[in-house]
């Protein structure tokens, strides 16, 4: 295959071209540049490489594995033309405002529920704000209203606090109702 260069090609045209992305388990994904660019990390790589970008030999992603990247790509495909999300917080309580998700997004997270942490980490590394903040919100949603025991069971966390430590936490946080 002839080596193509990203240089000198206008952006809409470039977006339609394919780029190969290699994950840390050596899986190759052929992705439209327009879709890959939802990730700021990949977009920066494409821009930085400029002339030297070899679309066929690909971009390596040493911190993401194939199965997770596949899920991320699904998100990118759906959000390729989506506007940048706006993260807002309550000016007084500093509590972050919850996003309203579309039916597609809700279904996406239902489908990949057990991979929420991996998705959040991948989205953080790949700099996909929409996926990152939405996944964080989904994780917060899982925490909200559940007891500490349920949360530990859900996330597979070891309880390393002694009863004395827990009593101390409850004593100092007098408003806490748990």
């Amino acid at each position: 295959m002839a080596t193509e260069s990203a240089n000198g090609v206008s952006s809409p045209e470039l977006n339609e071209r394919d780029v190969v992305i290699t994950t840390n388990d050596n899986r190759n994904f052929t992705v439209k540049i327009g879709v890959a660019r939802v990730s700021k990390t990949i977009n920066n790589m494409i821009q930085d490489l400029g002339e030297s970008l070899d679309l066929s030999s690909g971009i390596p992603l040493p911190n993401v594995d194939g199965p997770i990247f596949e899920k991320v790509l699904e998100w990118c495909e759906e959000h390729k033309n989506a506007p940048e999300i706006k993260v807002e917080q309550d000016p007084h309580t500093r509590e972050r405002k919850w996003f309203t998700m579309t039916e597609w997004e809700e279904e996406y997270f239902r489908k990949f529920l057990s991979h929420l942490w991996d998705l959040a980490m991948a989205a953080n590394y790949l700099e996909i704000p929409s996926l990152y903040y939405y996944t964080c919100q989904k994780l917060a949603e899982r925490i909200k209203g559940r007891t500490p025991e349920q949360i530990r069971e859900m996330f597979g966390i070891e309880d390393d606090l002694t009863e004395e430590e827990k009593a101390e936490i409850r004593r100092t946080n007098v408003w806490c109702t748990y």
Binding site: I143, I157, N173
Partner: peptide, 22 residues
């Protein structure tokens, strides 16, 4: 990442999360 998740929770939930682990 964990703090970004915490940012979506109210203070009462955060006090509860302190009881999860060290």
């Amino acid at each position: 990442l964990i703090c970004d998740i915490f940012s979506y929770l109210g203070r009462n939930e955060l006090e509860k999360c302190q009881l999860i682990n060290r």
